[in-house]
Every structure is written in structure tokens, then in C-alpha cells.
């Protein structure tokens, strides 16, 4: 308890969120670990609302950041989003097995009809992220606003998350890096993935890819708070049909697609 880095209740909270809640026995255990009176558990969940979340409570979070990507507007051959990401986050832009990729342009084609679509794919900022579930150190975590990050201070480079993520959104930094951007720390021996440009988001700006797409005039990407009914993204999602990639996996991505 004296070490802020092993601060049990906070970590357990992240865990509980990402598992969509946990059983009562485990909660009681966490309660004792956190030094909170176990009796407080009995009357109801309200006491817990401040520390641990009830099952399914991700939907009740005031903020959940996400993206809506409109493949109808995404142009083949345009890689403005990928280059903006590379530039902002100091990535090499190479696509070899050793190179980190946070966002990729993907082309899909219906072999029968030849119908083709382009769209970017990045970390889907899942509500139930596999990367967080498998991480042995708590380095992979989901912020309370829904952004899934790697806390590189804790990452031991085991690469479990690279294996677990069905979207192949995680990369591993295998070599020494010394040209990091001050706002995007990254280094050898840690996993990384799209951060939704968390530093920009915290300053009230959209992610670099979204800004670049808008600058290019395509406006195929929309960033916002999925849980605010007044936000542009929530309105758009309510208005048009959209989908998430591999929704069948039940990880509830925060990145929605239209027109795929």
C-alpha cells in the first residue's frame, strides 16, 4: 500500500472494468486488499460505485471515446491518416515484422463481385479488451474514458497482448529507439498500439489521423464521446447503420465502421 505503483484498489478497478465486473468473492478479496470495510459490500453496490464498477457498467460511464470510420468516404490510395500517425507518434513508417504499426489501411474485396472497400484499422479500444485480460502485469489497461493503453512503466515485454488481440493492433518495439517524440514516449522491450493520441485528446483535440483525414477533405473519420447523446458521433451512430469489426468476438470495440 505504500508503493503508489502497486496500488491495489486502482489496479483491481481497471481489471474489474475490463472483465465487465467480477464475482462477489473476488470483490470481497479486493475489498480487503484495498483496506475498505467488507461490511460496506452487503447493503448494495452504491458504496462500490466510486471504486469498483458493477457488471455492464462500462455502458454507464460518462465518457467513452471512440471513432466512426465511414468507408464510403475513405479513398483508395490515400494514406493521410497513416502518415499523420507516424509523424505525430514518431513511428518509422516501415511495415516489416520489426516495425511498430499503430494504424493500417486495409483493402477488402468481395471475390464474387469485385466490390472493393478501403478503410483504416487501428486499436479498436475495446470495452472488453483481450490485451488487458491477458496482460500479466497490469500494463495493458483501459482508462476510465475507454482508451486502451500500455503503461510502459509496467510492461515487461512478454508480448501476450500481441498474441491476444484479434485485430493485430499491438506492436512490439524490438530495437533501441532514440528519436521519440516528447509527447509519445516509446522504447525497446515494450508493447504499444494506437493510443487514440491520448495526449491530444487530453488537450481537447481529436486524434492526429482524424485531423489529417479532415484536412485532406475526406472527413471519413469522426472522433468523439460515444456516451454523450449530444455528440456528433453519437448522433451519427444513431442515424445510420454501422458495424464493428468481428463483433462476434464480443469485445465491443469503440471503433465503429460504416459502409463495410
Amino acid at each position: 500500500m505504500t508503493d503508489p505503483d502497486s496500488f491495489v484498489p486502482q489496479d483491481s478497478k481497471a481489471q474489474a472494468e475490463n472483465e465487465g465486473g467480477c464475482d462477489v468473492g473476488r470483490r470481497r478479496l479486493l475489498a480487503m486488499a484495498g483496506g475498505v470495510a467488507v461490511l460496506a459490500l452487503a447493503p448494495g453496490v452504491t458504496v462500490w460505485a466510486s471504486t469498483f464498477r458493477a457488471k455492464g457498467a462500462v455502458d454507464a460511464d460518462p465518457v467513452r471515446y471512440g471513432l466512426l470510420i465511414d468507408a464510403n468516404h475513405c479513398q483508395g490510395g490515400c494514406d493521410a491518416c497513416v502518415r499523420a500517425c507516424k509523424q505525430y507518434n514518431g513511428l518509422s513508417g516501415k511495415t516489416g515484422p520489426d516495425n511498430a504499426q499503430w494504424i493500417r489501411k486495409v483493402t477488402i474485396q468481395d471475390p464474387k463481385t469485385g466490390f472493393t472497400r478501403n478503410f483504416p484499422v487501428m486499436c479498436q479500444h475495446c470495452a472488453k479488451p483481450a490485451c488487458v485480460a491477458v496482460c500479466p502485469t497490469g500494463a495493458s489497461f483501459r482508462r476510465a474514458d475507454g482508451i486502451v493503453l500500455v503503461d510502459k512503466h509496467r510492461c515487461i515485454g512478454c508480448r501476450y497482448c500481441l498474441m491476444a488481440c484479434p485485430y493485430q493492433a499491438r506492436s512490439f518495439v524490438a530495437h533501441k529507439v532514440d528519436d521519440q517524440r516528447p509527447r509519445a514516449p516509446r522504447g525497446k522491450g515494450t508493447a504499444e498500439g494506437c493510443t487514440l493520441c491520448v495526449e491530444r485528446v487530453d488537450r481537447g483535440k481529436p486524434p492526429a489521423c482524424v485531423a489529417a483525414c479532415a484536412r485532406r477533405g475526406h472527413k471519413a473519420m469522426l472522433f468523439g464521446n460515444l456516451h454523450d447523446p449530444q455528440s456528433a458521433i453519437a448522433k451519427r451512430l444513431a442515424q445510420y447503420a454501422s458495424t464493428t469489426i468481428r463483433a462476434d468476438l464480443g469485445m465491443e470495440p469503440g471503433v465503429h465502421y460504416r459502409g463495410i
Partner: peptide
């Protein structure tokens, strides 16, 4: 700008400061 992230603050800060 950072204040907008402050919705996290009440439930984090007291414990954090105690630590």
C-alpha cells in the same frame, strides 16, 4: 485543457494523495 479529464479526479485523488 486538462481539466476536462477531471471527471476522474474525485474517485482517484483522495486515495492517491494518501498514498
Amino acid at each position: 485543457h486538462h481539466i476536462q479529464a477531471a471527471f476522474l479526479w474525485p474517485r482517484v485523488l483522495p486515495r492517491h494523495f494518501k498514498a
